[in-house]
């Protein structure tokens, strides 16, 4: 059972690849998803920058992208991926669909977090003569901060799952080892090791997310 064709170096490299894919797509996905989430909160009817056009355009786009399962999205956008990174195989190629997958997900999570903020806080901000930017920066985001951390934690865990899927199309990372060795070559140890690595990642991320969120909520 402990016989495996996978070397320790391969496991380490795969873990690094997974973290790299998760990290990069989370970073870029957040840069797209957070502003997008803010945009749909402030432009919604009754929002501080109510704008029917922006809202009715953004809202369905997010829904459409989110309704495509990642494994299909990954394959469907291969031509686009080629244009962006020049190849459709490998870690960098996997990051492109990961970003497209996670950005609208983050946007929805951010939307939920921001909508949880007591509307009275926004009213207080407006009564002080805050500009829309100040309302977002000084009131909305700080008040939602703890919840935002949990949202990003959820997104990160979603990404770990997606990177494993990216392994099936040569995306690299621990998912790749699970498919190539664990599944195709019946290497049980590789399979178990992959699962354990993924569990450790998820547990670690969730726990740190919880700790940070508690801190942000001054609990």
């Amino acid at each position: 059972m402990f016989e495996t064709a996978v070397t320790l170096d391969q496991f380490i490299q795969a873990s690094i690849d997974t973290l790299y894919m998760v990290g990069m797509s989370l970073l870029i996905g957040s840069l797209i998803g957070i502003p997008l989430g803010i945009a749909i909160v402030v432009t919604r009817p009754g929002g501080i920058l109510q704008n029917k056009i922006i809202y009715t355009v953004l809202n369905p786009i997010i829904n459409i992208v989110r309704s495509v399962p990642f494994i299909i999205l990954m394959v469907a956008i291969i031509p686009f991926t080629r244009i962006v990174v020049g190849t459709s195989i490998g870690t960098n190629a996997a990051i492109v669909p990961l970003i497209i997958f996670i950005s609208p997900f983050i946007a929805r999570l951010v939307e939920n977090s921001l909508l949880e903020v007591n509307p009275g806080i926004i009213e207080a901000a407006e009564s002080m003569g805050a500009t829309p930017f100040q309302v977002i920066w000084h009131f909305l985001l700080p008040e939602a901060f703890g919840s935002l951390i949990l949202s990003i934690t959820t997104a990160t865990i979603g990404l770990i799952g997606a990177t494993a899927m990216a392994g099936t199309v040569g995306g690299g990372g621990v998912g790749n080892i699970a498919i190539i060795y664990g599944y195709q070559r019946f290497d049980t140890f590789a399979m178990i090791a992959t699962v354990v690595i993924l569990i450790i990642f998820v547990q670690g991320i969730q726990s740190s997310g919880n700790v940070l969120a508690r801190k942000a909520r001054k609990e």
């Binding site: 007591n118 009275g120 806080i121 009213e123 207080a124 407006e126 009564s127 002080m128 003569g129 009131f139 700080p142 008040e143 901060f145 703890g146 942000a216 909520r217 001054k218």
Partner: peptide
């Protein structure tokens, strides 16, 4: 003008954070 007008609320509306 709003800076010339303070307002307080039933549920205080303070920033919890």
């Amino acid at each position: 003008m709003k800076k010339q007008i303070g307002m307080i609320f039933q549920h205080f509306n303070l920033l919890e954070s």
